[in-house]
């Protein structure tokens, strides 16, 4: 279990992580979701004791990461697949990690087998493709057979086959009762991987819920309505619905009243309609809506 309480990390005036509290439960894959620059990596570095929080606290099973005597046996992490010396072989890389935490040398061959790198174990890590590097990083995370696993954007740059492999792999780890915490900036990816979601934007918590709940909240149906009497229609509908305006063509976007009923109301008040189209909310759209306020760099 990972517990963050009012975690903060400020760089001068920039608040990379701001008053963030969340809990990651064992036996489930928990997705850590947010746009790029939301503070996901910074949070993970603080969990692992690499960065010191400006304020607040984060603990793993009640202890700071730095308090574990052989931390790799408790927590496995893949923060960046490129944290390997390019002229060092995959096996040598895992070997020094194993020795540092008194992990038996036989385990090195085991994890290489698990991630499918046995054949290239003697080759220098610098020549690995991104997918192979990710696998080596995962091998390093698994080395100490840890209860808690952290992965930062593990599917970045992977081919579809690798993505499926990682997804199934994380499910298996969680199925074994481990705590699996995985970050991503893609909701569609997380929707298929994570059972729980912690969503952040600009360093602040946006929501912590199950993925199922998040999706059903996020993809509520809505209706697009265009009318020359939009203002009047809006006034009438506003009593029973939340209404926003499409930024592109000024159409009304109505949540909470089905299309049929809107048509009947319009007929009743003799309002002409140019468009009345039920829409199914997309997950990606909902996510963008949710984090729109907190995206750091907008495209214009």
């Amino acid at each position: 279990m990972i517990e963050a309480v009012r975690l903060r990390k400020h760089y001068g005036r920039t608040k990379a992580v701001d008053d963030l509290s969340f809990t990651v439960r064992p036996g489930r894959v928990t997705g850590f979701l947010g746009p790029n620059g939301a503070g996901k990596s910074t949070t993970m570095r603080m969990i692992l004791g690499l960065d010191t929080p400006t304020g607040g606290d984060v603990k793993i099973d009640g202890k700071h990461y730095t308090e574990f005597k052989e931390p790799l046996r408790k927590v496995g992490a893949l923060l960046d697949a490129k944290w390997v010396h390019p002229n060092r072989s995959a096996r040598a890389h895992l070997k020094w990690l194993a020795v540092s935490n008194k992990i038996p040398a036989s385990r090195v061959a085991e994890v290489l087998e698990i991630v499918g790198l046995s054949e290239v174990a003697h080759k220098n890590a610098g020549g690995f493709s991104l997918g192979m590097s990710q696998r080596l990083g995962i091998a390093g995370a698994l080395l100490g057979d840890p209860e808690v696993l952290l992965f930062d954007e593990p599917v970045n740059g992977l081919d579809p086959e690798g993505i499926v492999w990682i997804r199934q792999f994380m499910h298996r780890l969680a199925g074994e009762g481990r705590t699996v915490f995985v970050s991503s900036h893609l909701l569609s990816e997380m929707a298929q991987t994570a059972q729980d979601l912690i969503v952040i934007g600009k360093g602040q918590l946006i929501s912590q819920t199950t993925t199922e709940q998040f999706i059903s909240d996020a993809t509520k149906d809505h209706v697009r309505v265009r009318s020359p009497h939009a203002v009047k229609l809006r006034e009438i509908l506003a009593a029973d619905a939340t209404i926003t305006e499409d930024a592109v063509d000024g159409a009304l976007v109505v949540h909470g009243i089905p299309a049929e009923q809107i048509g009947e109301i319009a007929a009743e008040h003799q309002i002409v309609l140019h468009e009345l189209s039920p829409q199914r909310g997309s997950l990606e759209e909902a996510f963008m809506q949710l984090t729109k306020e907190s995206v750091e760099y907008h495209a214009h």
Binding site: G49, L50, F68, D80, W83, V84, H85, S100
Partner: peptide, 17 residues
């Protein structure tokens, strides 16, 4: 070189002291 290739971070993860 440990800083250059960020293996210093891997080192500090393995040995937090």
């Amino acid at each position: 070189t440990e800083y250059r290739f960020s293996t210093i971070r891997a080192t500090f993860l393995a040995v937090p002291n």
